[in-house]
Design a binder for these strands. Sequence first.
DNA 1: TCTGGGGTCCTAGGACCC
DNA 2: TCTGGGGTCCTAGGACCC
Length: 424
Amino acid sequence: MFALVDCNNFYVSCERVFNPSLTGKPVVVLSNNDGCFIARSDEAKALGLPMGGPAFKFRDILKKHQVRIFSANFPLYGDMSSRVMATIGDLAPEIEIYSIDEAFIDLGGFSRFGLEHHASRIRYTVRKHTGIPVSIGIGSTKTLAKAASRMAKKNPGYEGVCMLSTQKEISEALATLKVEDIWGIGRQWNRLLETRNIRTALDYSLAPASWIRKNLHIPGIRIQEELNGHSCLPLEQIRPPKQSICTSRSFGRTVTSLDELQQAVATFAGKCSRKLRQEGSVASMLTVFICTSPFNEPHLKYRGTRTLAMLRPSQDTISVIRAAELALASIYREGFEYKKAGVIVSGLTPAQSFGRELTLFDTEAAAGNDRQKSLMEAMEHINRRYGPAAVRIAAENENAWKPNQTMKSAHYTTGWNDIITLGE
DNA sequence: TCTGGGGTCCTAGGACCC
DNA sequence: TCTGGGGTCCTAGGACCC
């Protein structure tokens, strides 16, 4: 049996841990740049504030009900997440961390304790150790566990833990689950399924496999198998190395000049190379994209994107920034108001395998490689000690385009200054 | 005025190999 | 007129997830 442990309204719950006066009040957390709702408390959901809804369209409701609004504080949420995952891992060693707020666990070895009882213990312990409320769903496949966790969350009668074990329980649950709420069924497929009158998860589980194979392909078949109790998706305890890494941001204001775009793109490239070093990978390709607001009039819209091969696979900040500058110069067009840009590094391979490898055009590459590597190490050493931007490449500069974040809470668990403030 | 960020998998089609 | 069979790799695009 699998269980899914899912944090309730995770980002809002993180804010509440350090600010208990938010309990029982409507609370929302906004995306970067204070754009959309990315987390809502139950009270905020009840007011009709939709997931992903742009905040400015709901200003009246927010004001009228004195909704507490927070800018995204990802260092806080990431740190709270690792505490939650560590707590779960203590009580269930076979764990797959599926997202920042969800973990699958294998309950195979726990039957003699009673699965529901053990799940309740996990739920209680996570709450006690971290302050974060969770819901737990149990089923014979990951997809059924996911469905069960949804029931646990929606229906207070379950007290946070729902197990689907008998065929009767499963069928009844699937009959109440809308097809669009199945894990793996998104908007497009929902639309297609509607035309075939497939509206509930039960309908989907009974639909002709040949039709699903033809229209929803292999992923669709897997979902059907999983709903029927045949496990196709194993627990993935070891995260495979990343295949691509992306850093992108919307700008706090529109940016028109190449100079300012260069500063933004260099900053994203720098971030990508730090992520590469953290991952232990080198990138062989790099993509830069820049775009105007997608809500612009058609003639004011532009999206430029360019992918190029790196001279040699690299994780070095200077090489990555240089490549990104080249790519940017080839797609920049004057006269547009740019709202967002990003850098993607791909074709990733483990860094070790490129230790001494030369490319066809290398002359003094080996020496240069070593020097750049020590430079990166020295910079990171300094920044670990004196703060994240104590030294940086001059091209990296976020003054012009910095996203808006006007309602950010403190770094309660990751910044000494904020911890001290809290204590006072 | 104001609309997020970071990923994965799968398929089809084109180019190439022997 | 008629022209094989069995592959791989890469890319773009479309779907999905949180």
